[in-house]
Write a protein that binds this DNA or RNA. Structure first.
Lengths: 174, 174, 174, 174
DNA sequence: AATGAATGAGGGTTCATTCAT
DNA sequence: AATGAATGAACCCTCATTCAT
């Protein structure tokens, strides 16, 4: 991975993240990256190839976010750590999730499998905690986290701390 | 509003909803609408004007969805009716919401004010029901409905009935 | 067929004829035709579509050249008229044949069926004239006309009149 | 001439011969030659320089084809040997002529002088054989050989043996 | 000699938009 | 109101070529 390759990826990341894939031209990417337009195609074949590269990196980063949960076995801790994720996101992680959400809604072929895996993990955790409808509870929680993360990404949340506290209370984890 | 104007709006609606605003050309819209491309500009000035028309209609439709809640005064019913919305959506309403969500993520200048109003309504309702953190609860519920609606739009929900039942139980409304 | 469409066809014809298909850009065609580049694609879909249009017209013109022969039934006259063709070409017909030959050599999917038909006609004529190897003679004559026409197109011929006289003598038609 | 230089020449030869000069990019040549694109320019300055190298080699090969004729002094043998050429071409010689013809039609600055020299040789031969219009006969024969060779290159000939026999008969050489 | 990253001009094509009818 | 021809800027991408290594 050369420097210029990184410059291209960074520029594309930011532009896609702010304006979307179709709204951004390879010319704009090249200019922001301080690179000739042709270089994009030498390294990434075409605009979609550039997107794929970004998408792959994105998936790795997001998977990494959830890694700790997958290694956790204590039911309460699984849930606790899951709830915790939206609140401990640093700027870079928010940047990643913003692009992921954006692409997921703009393009039809972008998916996030990790949520499915987390759902299963949560489902088993709720089961162990003797929740009546474990799978449903897992799905429900994922839904909430999805909405919550959306709000965080868009900066539409009033008070992270109290929101988190409320969430913990609802799941009797405080 | 002439017939052709409606054809254009319908075509643009479907195409934007499936592929997004920037991914669709006025040429494609004209073809699907069975109309000359020039007519789009006679009626809507430019592509953005067409989007505005759709967006306006969209807002009206979505506002209408929540109308009943705004007229409701009984706290429990306010919450009940709010919870009920994602589950009683007909195909056309889902179509509307899908486009709204899509545009909201693709473009930066699309907003949905009605949620803010509902949030206030909910906030007061929770207050009357003596919830400790009424506003927070309202925000929290809105977040969940957002995630839930996303899932419904994308057909990512297992069982609407039991999901609704769970939601009602969580709010002691059953 | 609008005026501008004709301008495009004429410009492309001349440029292809002088420089070849791949050596000429749509930009150059548009400039010579005094037309916006986009118009080429509106009328002919793409560069190859433009070529197809020219090729179709070309075939018609060339077929027309040989029409008289196909309607002839007298063996000696069939041969006479065939021999005559390369020598009575006017500027426009030479222009047509030049492009046809050029395209045939540059591109692999350009063919000239009319020569096959003429060959059959000649074959029957030679048969009636009791030539021993009628088909071979026909093929032979076509070969010669091909080389002769090449020379005429490239202006590599010394004296048309005497060349024609020689040809007639060789076939005892004088 | 290094190995890689040869690889480049071979690749370019084949590609030009099949697709033409303008249809082939230096990138394609480098790939087929298993060589870096830059190397083409180190050895041949530019794409045209590569063409020149090929063209020079081509001329040598074609000249060699006719060498025997130039050394012949017996009129009948001159004609006989000239007639013979198109029929004794091996695969490699056909490959050479194919490219030569192709380039001659695609590009305007490619010429084949050897034909002019052969024409003179033939002209003198016909003179010695007391043909009335020696030069014309020479030109005529060259024309035929041109058409015949075209047909052979394109594989458009039915029966080489009988074609050759016919040709010999026409010139009373059998 | 040889590579492969890098460039900038130009390739064909699509875009939103205008205009005459 | 409606069409469809026409435009010119911008699109993604490929080109021949250069340069550092």
């Amino acid at each position: 991975m050369t420097t210029k390759q990184q410059q291209i990826l960074n520029a594309a990341f930011d532009l896609f993240s702010n304006e979307g894939f179709h709204a951004i031209s390879t010319n704009k990417i090249a200019k922001l990256a301080n690179v000739s337009e042709g270089l994009i195609f030498r390294h990434f074949i075409n605009k979609e190839g550039l997107l794929d590269s970004i998408h792959k990196q994105l998936k790795l980063n997001v998977d990494f976010l959830f890694l700790e949960i997958l290694n956790e076995e204590e039911p309460k801790d699984i849930i606790k750590k899951t709830l915790d994720i939206p609140f401990k996101l640093d700027d870079n992680e928010i940047r990643n999730l913003k692009l992921l959400f954006k692409l997921q809604w703009e393009l039809n072929n972008i998916s996030v499998q990790v949520f499915e895996i987390i759902k299963n993990k949560l489902s088993k955790a709720f089961e162990k905690l003797r929740y009546k409808h474990a799978e449903l509870e897992a799905e429900f929680l994922i839904q909430h986290l999805n909405g919550l993360t959306s709000a965080i990404i868009r900066n539409q949340i009033l008070n992270k701390e109290s929101t988190k506290a409320l969430l913990l209370r609802k799941y009797h984890l405080q």
